[in-house]
Amino acid sequence: MIELSDVCKRYRVRSGKRVVLDQVNLKIEKGERIGILGRNGAGKSTLVRLIGGSELPTSGQIDRRMSVSWPLAFSGGFQGSLTGLDNLRFVCRVYGASYKAAQPFVEEFTGLGQYLREPVKKYSNGMRARLAFAISMAIEFDCFLIDEVIAVGDSDFQRKCHVELFEKRADRAMIMVSHDPHMIREHCSRAYVLDSGVLKAFPDVDAAYAHYESL
């Protein structure tokens, strides 16, 4: 289970303080898939970072009783001077995962070949995203964070991603942030709308979209 209790997040700006999240309460059970809707700048990515632990709330509490991934295909944490495999080794060490078990999967899944032995700073954005997604799948989590987009690479690679995430890990919890109504409706059992820092729950995905479109 992951539970957010009265979570607030404020940032200091030139005009003072900006409240991004205001008394947010949210509970995700094992195997549950939820969607979060909101306009650009509503705080969706901030909420994902708080759930993942890369940022701390200004106030309130986040209780994690499940292991949580970083946002899928996020490559911002890579060390550019290290090779792709060295970055994999580092991530495995941080999360207590087996590098020997993860390496063959990442090599096959990414299709990057010898580039995995080159510094990541030489990669294109697409190559970095492929590596990031593969590492996310190589390390098993109870809950996956999906921020906006997981459309990585060409159509064949996107199908591989879909199978790995939504079919092979159908029993995992997921928190999905997306503007794509098809994706939320297909993969989520319920949805929330984030507006003006307030997270509002709805009984079903269609009701959440009806409210979102009215904003």
Rank of each mutant, 00 (worst) to 15 (best):
F90D: 14
V91R: 15
F166A: 14
R89G: 07
G76Y: 06
N125A: 15
L145I: 09
I28H: 10
I62T: 04
V48P: 07
G35Y: 04
W70C: 06
A210H: 10
L4P: 00
H179N: 03
S136R: 11
F157M: 11
I34P: 01
V163S: 05
S45I: 11
R10A: 06
A102K: 05
R65P: 05
S98C: 10
V198P: 00
K200Q: 13
G35S: 05
H187P: 13
I62P: 12
E164G: 09
Q61F: 06
M174Q: 13
V198C: 08
S155Y: 14
Y192E: 06
E55N: 04
A191G: 11
I51Y: 14
V120N: 08
R130E: 07
H162N: 12
S69E: 10
D142C: 12
E213G: 00
R49C: 01
S15P: 05
L82Q: 12
V149N: 15
A129R: 15
A134H: 04
S45A: 10
D6W: 04
K27C: 09
Q61R: 15
I139H: 03
V91E: 15
D86I: 04
A207C: 09
E140N: 12
Q23N: 13
V120D: 06
V198L: 07
L26M: 14
S189F: 03
C92T: 09
F105D: 00
T46C: 02
P71M: 11
P104E: 03
C161E: 02
G76T: 06
T58Q: 09
K122E: 11
K44W: 11
G76K: 15
D204H: 15
Q61P: 00
E55L: 12
L116W: 13
L37K: 01
G197E: 04
R128K: 15
F74D: 15
A191T: 12
S155C: 07
